[in-house]
Structure formats: C-alpha cells, structure tokens
C-alpha cells in the first residue's frame, strides 16, 4: 500500500463513487479534457466519457442550476467550482434553490459542490478566500471541511451519498502537502462527527480545515514546554458536532477557537457562542478566537502572512489562554 495525497484521496473517492453508482456524474469548468485545474478529475473523461464527465461553459449559475435540476430527478452531481471564490457567481442557486427546495415542497437535492478553498498559496483576493461562513448560516445546506487525507476521501464519499446539497471545502494548501496510507475497501466518514485530532489536558483548540494542520505543529512545539494541547477537528461545520466541542471544553476548561476565515462573522463566532451558552461554568479563561484579519485576502507573501493566523499567533493565543 502506498501513501496518497489529500487531492488524490478526493479523486479516489469520486472515482469509486462514479463506479459504484451510475447516477453520479461530474461537471465543471475544465474538469474533462484538462482533468481539472488541480487535476482532481484527471483521467475521468477517458474512463467515464462525456457527458458523465462534463466540461461545462464558464457558467457557475448553469453548473449549479443543472446540478439542482438533475439532482431533483435522482442524479447525484459532483459540481466543481474552479476556486471556492467563484461560488459567489452561483450563490442564488445554492442559497435560494438548493437549500430551500426540500423544506418548501419536498424533493431531495443530492448534490456535492467541490470548493477549492483557502490561502497560503498567494492567490490573492479572488483565489484564496474561505467562504464557508456564507453558507453555514443557510438552513438546508451542509458544509464539510476535511483536514486529513483520510477525511478527504471518507467525507467525499459520505457527501456523494447524502441526500442534501453538500458544500465540500477542500483546502488547496493541503492538496499535496498531506500524504497518508488509506485502508482498502468501501468506507465513509459520516457527516457531523468531529474528531479528536490530538488528545490533551490543558487547552482545547477547536478548528477545522487547514488550521488542523497548523495547530498540530504548534501543539508539538508547546508540548516541549509542558503545555498539553487538545485539538478538535470539526470535519463538518453543518451538521455540527456540538457535543464533541463541549466535551473537550468540559475536560480542559480552556479553549481557543481557530480558523483561517476572517474573524467577524466567521464560524468561530458560532462555536464561541455555543461554548459560552452551554459550557460557561466549565471555563477557567475567556474564549479566544484566532482568525484572519478582516480584510480581503491580500496577494503579496508579506501581506498574506500578516493576514492569516501564523504559528506564532496560534501559539500566543494558546499560551495566553493557558496562563490566564
């Protein structure tokens, strides 16, 4: 068995699902002949043919609309946004059509939207955002943010099999940085179950996506100083595993909420509110949030590094929380 990357895990999950279920198909810009801007669908066209692997016009509204219309009739589209940022062009379709149609008049809308997300890649204002919080407040959508190779595969397979619109935020920084050996066979990671990424006694870091990786590195540094950090990887934001968060907070009594999205209105606000609401009496220190600056994502490396939570920021927040 050989180790595969995070993006290879995404590809493998889609490949297996395409073989498993004839209703599954892929659509998006440059996903066929070119194999996708990040090569997530490389070789699919040769294997499955057109229209099952569908190179579309440059039309995010049409990609979303066609996904919805076919999904309501039982197909299971996997739509790729070339970059998560471009989902803005298909926003109405997701938040007003896909999200509401089941509640309104009943049809299920089983579709996956793949969203290559996040920074650290010098992508700038339109190729590096983390727009998950646009959607976490829309009832009817599910929001998934894999942080590991294992979850990239398992959550994708679960998303394809889910009967709801699932927004799958795949982090570009992790694409080829993470490698792992995965078990054989058909397995999934259920949506809505958080994971203890690192067990610890002193402080809980509640996070998801790329920041699970960064928090892990910081935790190892702090371990040398005798600070034992627990990391909770949420894996999916909607549905949210609230109990996993509260359980960790009740154990460590100190918490840092961390994400790469900007701070104001970011999902960390929701997590913090739940902790304050349901575990207030367990807290020995104020909840601290670490997130990106409230600016657009800047391009130049010096600016992007100043924008994003850096290891030093994470470390400082954890130390302050532990010593409060």
């Amino acid at each position: 068995m050989s180790a595969i990357t995070y993006i290879e895990a995404i590809r493998e999950a889609m490949y297996e699902e395409l073989h498993r279920d004839p209703d599954v198909y892929c659509l998006g810009e440059d996903i066929g002949t070119y194999g996708g801007a990040f090569r997530a669908t490389a070789g699919f066209l040769e294997e499955f043919g057109r229209p099952r692997i569908l190179d579309t016009p440059l039309s995010e509204i049409a990609i979303m609309g066609a996904s919805i219309g076919s999904a309501m009739l039982g197909m299971r589209p996997i739509a790729e946004m070339q970059f998560a940022d471009f989902v803005a062009n298909g926003f109405n379709m997701l938040v007003n059509f896909a999200a509401k149609v089941h509640y309104r008049w009943g049809p299920s809308c089983p579709m996956v939207v793949r969203l290559p997300t996040g920074g650290g890649t010098r992508g700038g204002p339109f190729h590096a955002t983390n727009p998950e919080a646009w959607f976490t407040r829309v009832p009817g959508l599910k929001v998934v943010c894999p942080a590991t190779v294992y979850d990239a595969k398992g959550l994708m397979k679960a998303a394809v099999r889910d009967d709801n619109p699932v927004l799958y935020f795949e982090h570009k920084y992790l694409y080829r940085r993470l490698k792992d050996e995965l078990p054989q066979g058909d397995w999934i990671v259920p949506l809505g179950e958080a994971r203890v990424a690192r067990e610890g006694r002193d402080v809980s870091v509640i996070t998801y996506g790329s920041m699970v990786y960064h928090a892990g590195l910081v935790a190892e540094t702090l371990a040398a100083d005798g600070i034992d950090v627990e990391i909770i990887d949420l894996r999916s934001l909607i549905p949210l595993d609230e109990e996993a968060i509260l359980e960790s907070v009740r154990k460590t009594n100190r918490v840092v909420v961390l994400h790469e999205d900007t701070k104001t209105g970011g999902f960390g606000g929701e997590i913090s509110a739940r902790i304050a609401e349901f575990a207030f009496e367990h807290l020995d220190a104020p909840i601290r949030r670490v997130a990106s600056l409230d600016t657009p994502v800047p391009h130049a490396p010096q600016l992007e590094d100043a924008f994003m939570p850096m290891p030093a920021d994470i470390e400082a927040a954890i130390r302050a929380t532990v010593t409060y």
Binding site: G69, S70, F97
Partner: peptide, 13 residues
C-alpha cells in the same frame, strides 16, 4: 431555466 436544463440533462444522460 438552468434548473430545467438540469432536468433535460438528466434525460439526456
């Protein structure tokens, strides 16, 4: 319109 195009796409597929 795009949603019904999606229905039509499912017929074609």
């Amino acid at each position: 319109i795009p949603v019904c195009a999606g229905a039509a796409l499912s017929f074609q597929m």
